[in-house]
Nucleic acid binder design. Structure first.
Lengths: 231, 231
DNA sequence: CCGGATAATAAGGTCAACCATAACAATTTT
DNA sequence: AAAATTGTTATGGTTGACCTTATTATCCGG
């Protein structure tokens, strides 16, 4: 009898080759803002042991996607960076959709789109981009890479490099764990907002900012995650 | 230095436990329309060997999701059916979105959403449902299960059970491999369309239908995939 | 009721991604 | 320069989800 309905083409159960691979590539793109991350930073970011990360890095190196210089760090090759940027493009487009259309909470965006990105075929990605009107940034202010895997980085400075009394507007915040991002959100530290650096304290101490009318204290590490542009 | 950006909570690389599991559950829900499918039908549908399917069925049986009566077929337990329906809900909602908003080709919907469904967290699913205005059917005419895993099946008959001269309208077509579904689309055999059975031929031969002004021949197996409701 | 098709089980294997533990190498700190 | 810290490699597991190649069990049609 009607075995027509068998094997709907891509019903492939298994080949999830590379879901992990994509995570590694993405993590690398995200991490190497200023310096190439070491394997342990990577491992840490991905929530795996260093040994596992090392293994994976070796495999990806074999595939010509990255280069590991021991004790120095891991660098993406051109091909690797492109792939990583593609992943990021997918995720950030989804973030736009979830935020602007589905009204998902800002601080949960990263978390919720973090696995949607895999399994998003190119056709869908590009239709989505058109639907969203080709946004340039995700709700965190991060640039969305182009179809061909290019990504021009933001020209801004970390908030902690502002001088006292200087005003600036927030360009982006780094995708971070929920608690951190939730804190940003509660303090109104969102892309586009204007802030003024009121004060700093020595010994890695907190900064004082003015956001709107309010004065808030912000830890140094948090401040490093915020990219601003002087007014 | 700023290791704040480490470990964005769910950045879990590995635990893709269950992507396969979901496929099995979904396939079962899709297949057991009239009779419980045997393991080999399942295997066939999923594109794996019977041995693999057997193994997996055993595992899922152990988890209380299905019951396998040798030589009779596999049945979902209540829990299993609910889970399967959840998967189907996610996929069908995505199908609606891709079709209505992203303007994706009708015949590619199943294929393109087929892996999107995993990794769609409940929050996103439900926000999407609201955004889409809680549709009752996917673009194939299949019912969309409710949040709690219920799914009332369509009350219709397979097209081949019509009598000669009878008219009916198409309720749904079964999600099938690309070639099949493409053929449906080319012949205008889409949900909502009106058809009249003009003729039948013996020995599993094709049926002749009138669709709009045109007369078309349709293989019996294809006809079995189309559910209609007499006018 | 027998023989061939179909279905199920058995046995042993592969591969990707993980893990822990331990040793070794480089760098930094004291 | 020794000690402490951090980074890398080696070794040997585990697990899920596949695979192939038998062998055995059941069903169904002549």
């Amino acid at each position: 009898m009607g075995d027509l309905i068998m094997q709907p083409s891509n019903l492939k159960v298994s080949p999830k080759y590379s879901e992990s691979k994509e995570m590694y590539l993405k993590a690398l793109v995200e991490l190497d803002v200023f310096v190439s991350p070491t394997v342990s930073r990577l491992a840490n970011r991905l929530g795996v042991t260093q040994v596992s990360a090392n293994e994976m890095v070796r495999r990806l190196t074999d595939q010509g996607l990255m280069i590991h210089t021991p004790y120095k760090g891991v660098n993406l090759t051109k091909k690797g960076r492109q792939l990583g940027n593609n992943v990021l493009r997918r995720q950030r487009l989804w973030e736009c959709f979830l935020y602007d259309y589905l009204k998902v909470e800002w601080s949960r965006l990263y978390e919720l789109t973090c696995n949607l990105e895999h399994n998003t075929p190119p056709e869908v990605t590009e239709s989505l981009a058109i639907y969203l009107n080709n946004p340039a940034q995700c709700p965190h202010g991060q640039p969305i890479p182009t179809v061909d895997g290019e990504c021009k980085s933001l020209k801004g400075i970390p908030l902690n490099q502002l001088g006292i009394g200087e005003s600036a507007s927030i360009l982006s915040v780094t995708e971070s764990p929920l608690e951190v991002v939730e804190h940003f959100s509660q303090q109104g530290l969102l892309p586009g907002k204007h802030i003024t650096l009121v004060n700093t304290t020595p010994l890695q101490g907190p900064l004082t900012l003015q956001v709107g009318q309010a004065h808030i204290a912000l830890g140094l590490q948090m401040a490093e995650q915020i990219l601003v542009k002087r007014d």
